[in-house]
């Protein structure tokens, strides 16, 4: 069974080292070559390359070392209930009770978050009245918005109590939004200079 030995033979060290060396070198070469392309904002392209090649490096190195790309690891919560069809209600009751047993009354925490939200909003209004530059204000506002969003989602929506993997499931798609706004801002800056009226 030649095929089987093929499948399970470890990859020789020299192949690994060549590939591992190749990727950083390739990255540098690519950045240099793209930078030489005329009229392309070099920094952005370079950032793109780094940003896409680092994951690629991770993937390749994981594959080369024979590891899995994604490991669906054990949850840090030990009380995952076995799933039995038709059992949803019982499961919900159990998990709520479990939650109540293991956590002290959260009302205090809610009050705290309430005050935080209030104060942050007041700070924001204060900043709006201040004479800071537009750019500084924008950065501060975005920062405080994210702070508020984290508190609302984390505490009020109990996201902090969920498993890490679930949190990542919800947070990762936001990457696409960041990419989207990056593109739209680049676009509207260009449009500003090309408007007719």
């Amino acid at each position: 069974m030649e095929t089987q030995t093929l499948a399970h033979k470890p990859i020789p060290v020299y192949v690994k080292s060549i590939f591992s060396a190749l990727i950083p070198v390739l990255t540098l070469v690519l950045i240099t070559v793209t930078l030489s392309a005329k009229n392309v904002p070099g920094g952005t392209i370079a950032a793109l390359w780094i940003y896409l090649l680092i994951p690629a490096y991770y993937v390749v190195s994981r594959l080369l070392s024979g590891k899995q790309l994604l490991t669906f690891s054990h949850s840090n919560e030990s009380h995952s209930h076995e799933y039995v069809p038709g059992d949803e209600d019982r499961y919900i009751v159990q998990s709520i009770n479990h939650h109540l047993e293991h956590h002290e009354s959260p009302v205090k925490k809610f009050v705290k978050v309430f005050w935080i939200l209030l104060v942050v909003t007041l700070i924001e209004v204060g900043i709006a009245y201040s004479s800071l530059s537009k750019m500084t204000m924008a950065v501060l506002f975005m920062f405080f918005t994210i702070v508020k969003a984290i508190y609302i989602a984390g505490t009020f929506m109990h996201l902090k109590d969920e498993t890490k993997q679930f949190i990542w499931t919800l947070v990762l798609p936001v990457f696409f939004l960041i990419w989207f706004i990056f593109i739209l801002l680049t676009e509207s800056g260009y449009l500003l200079g090309h408007r007719l009226f």
Binding site: V40, T186, E187
Partner: peptide, 17 residues
């Protein structure tokens, strides 16, 4: 389409991937 030509470069890159 008349969008920022720089975005053309960005999207050539991601598209061909």
């Amino acid at each position: 389409s008349g969008m920022n030509p720089f975005l053309g470069s960005v999207f050539v890159f991601t598209t061909l991937l």
